[in-house]
Amino acid sequence: MSLLSVKDLTIRFRTDEGLITAVENVSFDIAPGEVLGLVGESGSGKSVTAKALMQLNGGNTVYDPASKVVLNLPDTQPLDILSFKRERDMGVIRGGAISMIFQEPMASFAPAITIGKQMVEQLMLHTDMSKDRARKHSIDMLDRVGIKDPDKRIDQYAFELSGGMRQRAMIAMALSTSPKLLIADEPTTALDVTIQAQVIDLMKDLVAEFGMGILFITHDLGVIAQTADRVSVMYLGRIMETGPVRDVIRNPAHPYTKGLINALPKLDDLDAPLTPIPGDIPSPLERPPGCVFHTRNPDHVPGSRYEREVPPMSQVSPDHFAALFPEDVA
């Protein structure tokens, strides 16, 4: 059974300009021990989707009544996360069953409280550990993510650590409560490539060791190719293509996925031209009808039904689906 099941998630925001649709009919499943990559450019709705899993979106968020986010934990009833109305109900989820790591580790730690105090605080909140036990466990976690002298580092402040070290501490803190699901929102984007490579290697080791499911959000297809088992490609709030990472990257079916890959500079072929996707991402206030990508699709045939009808997720190969009408799946 899947650990997390997201079904027909539709998220709108109330704004001065009216209701804005940020995410529309997004569905995916994550099994224990599985890494699902969520790729998309800015404005694709990937972070809003992730925050919905812990109800972290702002007060002007409207979840469609048909949306379902269900977390299946061993030995308990399935938890319908969107049905929680009170903040205190979320305590089991936030930092307990689900942990999140963010892009900017400097912004995620409180600047005036030591790393250790923050780590111990959340352990006391989510587990029945004593203070001493929590501190020992925190030092152990810092050691596991490759921080040298963890018993000294634990009493330092976030600004005393380098960028890569801070992100490691963030990961250690997120994993110390043994969450079943880890949401990683662009965890390596602010890091240098060499540090990024170390963090990616570390996350792979930790999945093998702890066996939690990971939702890995990034704009970088290379990072996805290196970390994910399956990938979903998002554009303007919709999933365009989803499938095993090999199938999607080697045989992309959707023109948006193809466009993303063609725009990427590749080291093994320096003569390949870089082909941009024409146009800019439309404003969420002007979502195109039908297939949201048709306005930028270079192969779009004017007058085709992509302008009016939303294409279904059609099967490309086993487990590999693309938002295309069946006749367009090669």
Partner: peptide, 20 residues
């Protein structure tokens, strides 16, 4: 080391980065 740290687009090329 810098070259080895670039994430490859090939899912089967999951080598570890060389640390300088």
């Amino acid at each position: 080391s810098l070259l080895s740290a670039i994430p490859s687009l090939d899912p089967d090329d999951r080598h570890r980065a060389v640390v300088y």
